[in-house]
């Protein structure tokens, strides 16, 4: 009997909302939305945690410009505060070396992180999910009972092909969904909105492709001033954040 699983609910007990930012497809901006969402909520005065569960390709630390920090060890692991966000990532333990993990390793890492990380009280815990419906998604659903999903896509048919599968499985499992957010919008296509209506999933809105965003990566102050953040905020207002 794995003892670590028993303590997970206690570790998450004082977190009001847990939001997994997910997609069926990679490269649609999940990490960017997760990191900027965390920044946005901190700016609004909320207590926020960010957990990067993309164990093969973590990138939230790059977006937030996290360097030379390590969690404090105090009857567990205390995530360092990055621009006001309690930030936890596998990156503290891998030194940015390649991380080749198989499924059983992924599950064990998730159990260990959830069992030893002491978030204490938070208004929001944002989870930056890896793409797809593999081990991480299934484990988040298994271990985090109160989680809600925010699903990110682009208007590409290729993205939506995979994203629809994620939406369908979340719906089948009756997982609460905040809705679907369309990122990097470049045309007037209503394909994503139409699919969301067809699946009876809330379509939150779109964020236009921001040419200048790359320059803001690694600098939370610049991210907060970006057009991307402005449009993200306009979309968040439409939801229950």
């Amino acid at each position: 009997m794995d003892a670590r699983v028993s303590v997970i609910a206690k570790r998450l007990k004082n977190i009001k909302r847990i939001i997994s930012v997910a997609s069926g497809k990679g490269g649609v901006g999940k990490s960017l939305v997760a990191s900027t969402l965390a920044l946005n909520l901190v700016e609004k005065g909320f207590k926020v945690g960010l957990l990067d569960l993309d164990l093969y390709g973590p990138s939230s630390h790059i977006i937030l410009g996290v360097k030379n920090v390590f969690p404090e060890e105090k009857k567990g692991i205390i995530p360092p505060s990055i621009h006001g966000i309690k930030f936890m990532s596998i990156i503290y333990f891998t030194e940015d070396k390649p991380s080749a993990f198989r499924g059983i390793d992924i599950t064990n890492i998730i159990i260990e992180i959830l069992a030893i990380t002491k978030w204490e009280s938070l208004d929001y815990l944002i989870i930056d999910m890896p793409p797809g419906i593999g081990d991480e998604t299934l484990d988040v659903i298994r271990f985090i009972k109160r989680g809600e999903f925010l699903v990110i896509t682009t208007e590409s048919k290729v993205s939506m092909g995979a994203v629809v599968k994620l939406l369908k499985i979340l719906k089948e499992l009756k997982i609460p969904m905040i809705g679907i957010l369309e990122n990097m919008k470049m045309t007037n296509s209503s394909m994503v909105k139409d699919e969301a209506i067809k699946l009876k999933i809330p379509f939150i809105g779109s964020i236009k492709y921001d040419n200048n965003l790359e320059e803001a990566i690694g600098d939370p102050d610049s991210l907060l001033k970006s057009r991307f953040m402005k449009e993200l905020n306009e979309n968040l207002i439409k939801t229950n954040f």
């Binding site: 003892a3 670590r4 699983v5 303590v7 009857k75 567990g76 069992a115 030893i116």
Partner: peptide, 14 residues
């Protein structure tokens, strides 16, 4: 000392 966090998981499981 994340031993404490793991010890807590033992007691909770028991």
């Amino acid at each position: 000392m994340h031993e404490w966090a793991l010890a807590e998981s033992i007691v909770m499981t028991v």
